[in-house]
């Protein structure tokens, strides 16, 4: 079983700061981390490999050279090897161009060692789109199953896998044919504290870095900024009601005022 996990380096949005004057990201304030959902994706691959008692886990990322850090982090969690595609040609890609570039890299990885399962995080915390995973699946013409919360019964002879997919009202039990692509929720597993030998392995590991020239049959017009149909028109600070106001009067009066303030939000309330 060959599992490829797609991972992304993202700024830690929990503590990110936006420069209020320029509406740009204060990079110094935002350390780069492995997208938390992707960490769960790697962990799930490790779990599956353990379950089967064999297999190989590759990780794939796209980004600047320093994004090798997230590949090393994945090795710490238990991946076997990692590839980074890094080239100016990929820069400025939206989700469509990203899924194109990654699918090209996956084709190359698959050529050497056919891929059975691709796992992605549900979405990246910097973009929150969740579009790249399904996009890759479409390009490789394999079925995607998004929002997966459990992987079980990997049947190698039948080439099927049993999945639980989270939906609003509960979950679906899905049988999918392998190869397929999964995107996983955080609740699928908990990240284990990596063992020391993995740490040492990761510290030594040199990820494979591919430029656009290392990929085959690439249509360059589909890459990077050129290949991205969407552009950011403008950035602005979200319109947020001004804080710090106190309601006046006695308890009854305050409650009444609050009810009035909430009157235009009534569709948010639904008794259970």
């Amino acid at each position: 079983m060959h599992i490829v996990v797609c991972v992304k380096q993202v700024p830690d949005t929990k503590i990110i700061k936006i420069n209020p004057k320029t509406n740009t990201l204060d990079r110094r304030s935002a350390p780069a981390i492995l997208n938390p959902y992707d960490a769960h994706a790697v962990q799930e691959a490790v779990k599956i490999k353990k379950m089967l008692g064999k297999g190989i886990i590759s990780v794939l990322s796209m980004g600047p050279p320093q994004a090798t850090a997230v590949i090393k982090k994945s090795i710490e969690i238990g991946a076997d090897r990692g590839f980074l595609i890094s080239d100016r040609a990929f820069a400025g890609a939206d989700t469509l161009a990203t899924s194109y570039a990654l699918s090209k890299a996956l084709e190359r990885i698959s050529k050497e060692n056919p891929v059975d399962l691709i796992i992605c995080g549900k979405h990246a915390i910097d973009g929150d789109t969740g579009q790249v995973g399904p996009g890759i699946a479409r390009r490789l013409d394999i079925p995607p199953v998004t929002n997966v919360i459990e992987v079980s019964e990997l049947n190698e002879s039948e080439s099927t896998v049993l999945l639980k997919r989270k939906i609003t009202s509960g979950y679906e039990l899905i049988q999918a044919q392998v190869p397929c692509l999964l995107t996983v929720e955080k609740e699928i597993n908990s990240i284990e504290y990596s063992p020391m030998p993995n740490m040492i392995k990761a510290a030594r590991y040199e990820p494979v870095i591919w430029s656009v020239n290392d990929l085959e049959d690439v249509d360059r017009t589909q890459l990077g900024l050129k290949g991205s149909p969407t552009i950011v028109g403008k950035m602005f600070t979200p319109p947020k009601p001004e804080g710090g106001k106190r309601l006046e009067g006695n308890a009854d009066e305050q409650v009444k005022q609050l009810m009035e303030l909430l009157s235009d939000k009534k569709e948010l309330f639904a008794p259970q």
């Binding site: 939206d94 469509l96 899924s99 789109t129 579009q131 149909p229």
Partner: peptide, 23 residues
């Protein structure tokens, strides 16, 4: 922007090679 809506839109946008804005 539900689980199904996002899933579907991503696949459709890829196939139609068009832009998709999430959430």
């Amino acid at each position: 922007a539900t689980a199904n809506g996002k899933d579907l839109a991503s696949a459709v946008a890829t196939d139609l090679s068009t832009g998709l804005t999430a959430d």
